[in-house]
């Protein structure tokens, strides 16, 4: 009798344990690990803090986990990266909103797959204190050094307009991004309009002299990922995997800020350390917002008005976006309706 009861209890216990095991097993989330052959992808990114998510994704193996053998190339600027993509040297490129606009005037064979970063203060205005810089309005009558990039020109235009400065009231000197910090340091220019990491270089070269002017409230720069349109047809899956890995890297950066900086610093290859720097103004987030159209159209109108293009019509940017990749990864962050 007692043995039978004991047997019944044992059976009950086993059933309960089995159920618990099943529940636990079902509730455990397993990290997917791709074990098949990996697709090779080359990603080109501009300088400053822009490469950080991609470096994190590379170092933490997020690309590997999704089955992609990704190579990250850091270029001195996003423009160089775009050129490399259009030349077929890389598959995916970082592209700023102004570059989208300028390229859209010339070609329509590329697609934007996602915005992955934005900043209200990527392009900075740094002046010399001894040039009398205290406020943005002090730019009037000064020599301003800028790279030969439409983006910086657009920014400067917005900045001057915002602060009521006539563009003709300043003198613009075009120098390469690398030369600008030196030029400021040598006093060849009174101020520079430059992006990272060169802005930080300029600040470091004149620790007591350099002054960063307030950021523009009328300019939000977006950093996007673009591919050739033909690539979207042939490698739709790869794009999803890339965005998945980048999203995972962005989450990691949010949750492990200091560790991310340390990983980036320890992983930079020779040459990369000059181009990569952390940026507090960069907000990493994957999205495809409809407001991007507003920005693009606004910049297009400016480009037309300022004769940066011969085109006279603002392009229809609906045709320049590939939504499927991000929809597969973060559908609620896709607000563009095609």
């Amino acid at each position: 009798m007692r043995t039978k009861r004991k047997l019944n209890l044992n059976i009950d216990l086993w059933i309960v344990l089995l159920l618990a095991f099943v529940v636990l097993t079902a509730s455990c989330q397993k990290t997917e690990t791709f074990t098949g052959p990996k697709e090779k992808v080359t990603i080109g990114i501009g300088s400053g803090g822009l490469p950080i998510p991609f470096i994190i994704a590379r170092e933490k193996g997020f690309f590997r986990d999704v089955g992609v053998d990704a190579t990250v190339r850091i270029y001195p600027s996003a423009i160089k990266s775009n050129d490399a993509m259009f030349a077929g040297e890389i598959d995916i490129s970082c592209i700023g909103d102004i570059q989208i606009v300028m390229q859209s005037f010339m070609r329509d064979d590329f697609s934007v797959i996602a915005t992955y970063a934005s900043s209200n203060d990527n392009i900075k205005v740094i002046g010399r204190k001894d040039s009398g810089f205290d406020k943005p309005e002090d730019l009037k009558g000064k020599i301003i050094g800028t790279p030969d990039a439409v983006g910086t020109h657009f920014f400067l235009n917005v900045y001057l307009t915002e602060h009521g400065i006539d563009p003709s009231a300043i003198k613009i000197v075009t120098l390469s991004p690398m030369e600008l910090p030196e030029a400021l340091g040598e006093g060849k220019v009174d101020a520079i309009v430059i992006y990272e990491p060169y802005a930080s270089m300029a600040m470091k070269s004149l620790p007591d002299q350099a002054i960063k002017l307030p950021r523009s409230n009328l300019y939000k720069q977006t950093f996007n990922l673009a591919v050739m349109r033909s690539y979207t047809k042939a490698h739709a899956d790869v794009l999803k995997k890339i965005l998945k890995a980048v999203d995972r890297a962005i989450l990691f950066i949010e949750q492990n800020g200091d560790e991310s900086i340390a990983i980036v610093n320890n992983s930079l290859k020779p040459g990369e350390d000059l181009l990569v720097s952390s940026q507090d103004d960069l907000v990493f987030e994957l999205s495809l917002e409809h407001s991007l159209f507003t920005i693009l159209e606004d910049e297009a109108r400016w480009a037309i008005a300022t004769k940066f293009t011969e085109k006279t019509k603002v392009p229809n940017y609906l045709g320049y976006f590939y939504l499927d990749a991000l929809k597969a990864v973060k559908p609620k962050d896709v607000s563009i309706v095609i």
Binding site: L218, K220, H290, I295, K332
Partner: peptide
């Protein structure tokens, strides 16, 4: 023209922010 350009810029940014506000509102609703 400058003021107009400035206005356009401001409106543009306002629209961007409005859109973002709305998007975030929908996000919260969701």
């Amino acid at each position: 023209a400058t003021v107009q350009a400035l206005r356009e810029r401001i409106v543009s940014q306002m629209l961007v922010n409005a859109h973002s506000l709305y998007r975030e509102g929908l996000n919260v609703l969701q």
